[in-house]
Design a protein around this nucleic acid. Structure first.
Lengths: 105, 105
DNA sequence: AAGAAGTGCAATCCTGTGGTTGCAAGACGC
DNA sequence: GCGTCTTGCAACCACAGGATTGCACTTCTT
């Protein structure tokens, strides 16, 4: 069961503000300053969040002149989802087996 | 996009110790004390973790005499996974559309 | 009845981190 | 060149939370 690099991704997803940022980026790529204009937090706070999102590969950045535009990588979400689902399925399988044993089958 | 009660679940999954507990419970139901014997943390620390896991519905408890046995609910993991996958897919769809526009199609 | 094993609650400690303000440095538009 | 916009540190603050120790209470065993 390779939880591997999965835990930090969930840690990143376990913050409301970060979801706000992801949602805002869903409307289209944006810079930290642009996001700061739309969200009720400072640009610096947003930059920190973008840093952790980029760290776990949920977001990528591209420098355009004097600004840095951020973009969501949806595939990463799907990947994390697939891995989580595999783990959940494994648990269900095991629980089902235990239940059968418990029922004396 | 109903992130709803999803964020706390990810927050709960964003901790290595909690995964250790889930993994240990995967071997079979166990009490807090039993888990404390297998993991390098105190029983009280484990109890706190079990509390947050139960809070978000990843685990359920049952009192048996003087002890309280905990059990993983695998279906909850699968559910969170499905919801996350839906969000990821939505993002991919949107990104694909943007890409087409960008390519002048 | 008495000891052992388990839970529950509370106080405490310390690190992590989400948030802020302030300022220096880079890139653009005139 | 000069004002403007944006990024990039760095310091700092406050709170949450992961972990510990200590003690009281309940339940089982003998």
């Amino acid at each position: 069961m390779t939880t591997g690099t999965l835990v930090p991704v969930f840690a990143a997803l376990g913050d409301e503000t970060r979801w706000s940022i992801l949602a805002a980026l869903g409307e289209g790529d944006a810079s930290a300053s642009a996001l700061a204009g739309r969200l009720p937090v400072t640009r610096q706070a947003i930059m920190k969040h973008l840093a952790v999102l980029q760290e776990v590969g949920l977001v990528e950045s591209e420098r355009v002149g004097r600004e840095v535009r951020y973009r969501v990588i949806g595939a990463q979400l799907s990947d994390a989802a697939r891995r989580l689902d595999a783990i959940g399925a494994e648990w269900d399988r095991r629980l089902a087996a235990i239940k059968q044993i418990a029922e004396g089958l």
